[in-house]
Computed example of a mutant assay.
Amino acid sequence: MSNALAAAAVAIGPGAGVESTAAALSRAVLLASARMEVTDRPDRVQIINGAFNANPDSMKAAAFTALSAWRTDAGPSPSWAR
């Protein structure tokens, strides 16, 4: 997300339109696998794969992201989130 915000700032700063910048970002594709890759399983389990370039700081950031993205409407929290 921060990369997309940085790209938008670089584009909009010199005069690109907000709408065209948003349209361009909406067409962005994942170039590296295992970088915050989200998979929704049929049994309502959501897998977030953040294994790309795993190190202690990135794993801490991934755990924080997972906990902050937890949806309250998804039912009880998993045992690891308590």
Score class of each variant (00 low, 15 high):
residue 2 S to R: 12
residue 2 S to L: 14
residue 2 S to M: 11
residue 2 S to D: 11
residue 3 N to S: 11
residue 4 A to F: 09
residue 5 L to N: 12
residue 5 L to S: 09
residue 6 A to S: 15
residue 6 A to F: 09
residue 7 A to T: 11
residue 8 A to L: 01
residue 8 A to P: 00
residue 10 V to C: 09
residue 10 V to D: 10
residue 11 A to W: 07
residue 11 A to G: 02
residue 11 A to T: 06
residue 12 I to R: 01
residue 12 I to W: 00
residue 13 G to V: 05
residue 14 P to H: 13
residue 14 P to Y: 06
residue 14 P to T: 11
residue 14 P to C: 13
residue 15 G to R: 00
residue 15 G to W: 02
residue 15 G to Y: 02
residue 16 A to E: 13
residue 16 A to F: 05
residue 17 G to E: 08
residue 18 V to Q: 07
residue 19 E to M: 12
residue 19 E to D: 14
residue 19 E to N: 13
residue 19 E to W: 15
residue 22 A to W: 01
residue 22 A to M: 08
residue 22 A to Q: 05
residue 22 A to K: 03
residue 23 A to K: 04
residue 23 A to W: 02
residue 23 A to T: 15
residue 23 A to C: 12
residue 23 A to F: 07
residue 25 L to S: 03
residue 25 L to W: 06
residue 27 R to F: 02
residue 27 R to N: 06
residue 28 A to E: 11
residue 28 A to L: 01
residue 28 A to S: 07
residue 28 A to P: 03
residue 28 A to G: 03
residue 29 V to W: 05
residue 29 V to Y: 10
residue 30 L to F: 12
residue 31 L to W: 10
residue 32 A to I: 08
residue 32 A to F: 10
residue 33 S to I: 06
residue 33 S to E: 14
residue 33 S to F: 06
residue 34 A to H: 15
residue 34 A to Q: 15
residue 34 A to V: 09
residue 34 A to I: 01
residue 35 R to C: 05
residue 35 R to H: 05
residue 35 R to I: 04
residue 36 M to K: 02
residue 36 M to S: 08
residue 36 M to A: 15
residue 37 E to H: 12
residue 38 V to Q: 11
residue 38 V to D: 12
residue 38 V to N: 03
residue 39 T to A: 07
residue 40 D to H: 08
residue 43 D to P: 03
residue 44 R to P: 01
residue 44 R to F: 05
residue 45 V to D: 04
residue 46 Q to P: 01
residue 46 Q to R: 15
residue 46 Q to W: 03
residue 47 I to P: 01
residue 47 I to K: 04
residue 47 I to T: 02
residue 48 I to A: 00
residue 48 I to S: 00
residue 48 I to W: 00
residue 49 N to A: 08
residue 49 N to G: 05
residue 49 N to F: 03
residue 50 G to E: 06
residue 50 G to W: 01
residue 51 A to R: 00
residue 51 A to Q: 07
residue 52 F to H: 13
residue 53 N to A: 15
residue 54 A to P: 00
residue 55 N to I: 12
residue 56 P to R: 01
residue 57 D to Q: 08
residue 58 S to P: 04
residue 59 M to A: 06
residue 59 M to G: 01
residue 59 M to S: 07
residue 59 M to P: 01
residue 61 A to V: 08
residue 61 A to K: 12
residue 62 A to F: 08
residue 62 A to Y: 00
residue 62 A to P: 00
residue 63 A to K: 10
residue 64 F to R: 14
residue 64 F to P: 04
residue 65 T to D: 08
residue 67 L to R: 14
residue 67 L to N: 13
residue 67 L to T: 08
residue 68 S to W: 08
residue 69 A to M: 13
residue 69 A to Q: 04
residue 70 W to V: 01
residue 70 W to N: 07
residue 70 W to M: 10
residue 70 W to I: 09
residue 71 R to I: 03
residue 71 R to H: 10
residue 71 R to D: 14
residue 72 T to P: 06
residue 73 D to K: 13
residue 74 A to R: 04
residue 75 G to V: 09
residue 75 G to E: 02
residue 75 G to N: 03
residue 76 P to F: 01
residue 76 P to V: 07
residue 77 S to V: 13
residue 78 P to A: 10
residue 78 P to T: 05
residue 78 P to I: 04
residue 79 S to V: 07
residue 79 S to P: 12
residue 80 W to K: 04
residue 80 W to A: 13
residue 80 W to R: 09
residue 81 A to T: 04
residue 81 A to C: 09
